[in-house]
Every structure is written in C-alpha cells, then in structure tokens.
C-alpha cells in the first residue's frame, strides 16, 4: 500500500515542522502538545488502520475508517467555528483602529481629559 507510506512520510514531515515551530517559540507548549498528539495519533492510524476498528466497534460504529471520517468532520467544524469567531474579533479590532485614526484626523484626541475635541482640550488646559 503506497498510500500508507506516503501518509506516514507526510506526517513525519508535519511533525518535524511542529517541533521546529516549537523550538523557535511560535507555538506555545499547549499548542505543541495538542498538535503533536494529534499528528502522532494520525500517524498511528496510517501505520496500523486496524486499530481504529477496535475503537469503532466499542463505540458501535461499523468500520474504523468511518470513525476517522466522523471525528475529522467534528474537528473540522469545530475549527471552522473557532476561526469564524476569531475573524469576527479581529474585524472589531480593525474597526477600533480605523475609528481611532478617523477621530484623530477629525481633531478628536485622547488626552489627560479623556477623549475630547481639540478645542475643548485647549480650554481645559487654559483653565489649569
């Protein structure tokens, strides 16, 4: 089975990337462990597909391959959900920055007196 060795080769490559990313600290220890366990499990399944059959039978799912497909789908949907939420948050952050620039450009500024219009800041400073 050529696909088996191709998959295992691919997974080894991915794991080496994960280790590299962890070393250069662009992955947190938590993320590192999560992805390492994930890809080791994927590697185990590619290496010995029968193992999924044992778990599948326990869960009442006919074939091991079906179990892998079901789990993958759940994982993908969850990831999509997470990314969507993250995207929305990023959108709001961008809006905040764009708004700040617009306000600054319009003569509204953050000052010791909070966000005020320039003219008001002048008069407040004069009072001091």
């Amino acid at each position: 089975m050529l696909i088996k060795y191709l998959l295992i080769l691919l997974i080894v490559l991915i794991i080496s990337r994960i280790v590299l990313r962890f070393r250069e600290r662009s992955l947190s220890p938590r993320e590192f462990i999560f992805w390492l366990v994930f890809w080791l499990a994927a590697g185990a399944v590619a290496f010995q597909p029968d193992w999924t059959g044992i778990v599948a039978e326990r869960l009442g799912i006919g074939r091991g391959a079906d179990l892998v497909v079901y789990l993958s789908l759940v994982a993908i949907f969850y990831l999509l959900f997470r990314i969507q939420i993250q995207q929305k948050k990023t959108d709001r952050e961008i809006t905040k920055i764009v708004r700040k620039i617009a306000m600054d450009g319009g003569g509204y500024q953050s000052s010791d007196f909070g966000l005020r219009h320039n003219s008001e800041v002048q008069s407040l400073k004069a009072e001091d």
């Binding site: 961008i94 809006t95 764009v98 708004r99 620039i101 617009a102 306000m103 450009g105 319009g106 509204y108 966000l115 005020r116 219009h117 008001e120």
Partner: peptide, 23 residues
C-alpha cells in the same frame, strides 16, 4: 468629515459618528 481609511460598514461608521457627536 471623519474618514475611515478602509471600509468598515455602515454600523461602524454610525458608531464613529455617534462618539464624535457626543464629544
């Protein structure tokens, strides 16, 4: 005129206007 450098949508524009009007 207050200028959003990039398009953020009508809701975002209204919020910018609301803050400015209050200020």
């Amino acid at each position: 005129v207050l200028t959003h450098l990039i398009n953020r949508g009508q809701g975002a524009a209204l919020e910018t206007g609301r803050m400015a009007a209050i200020l």
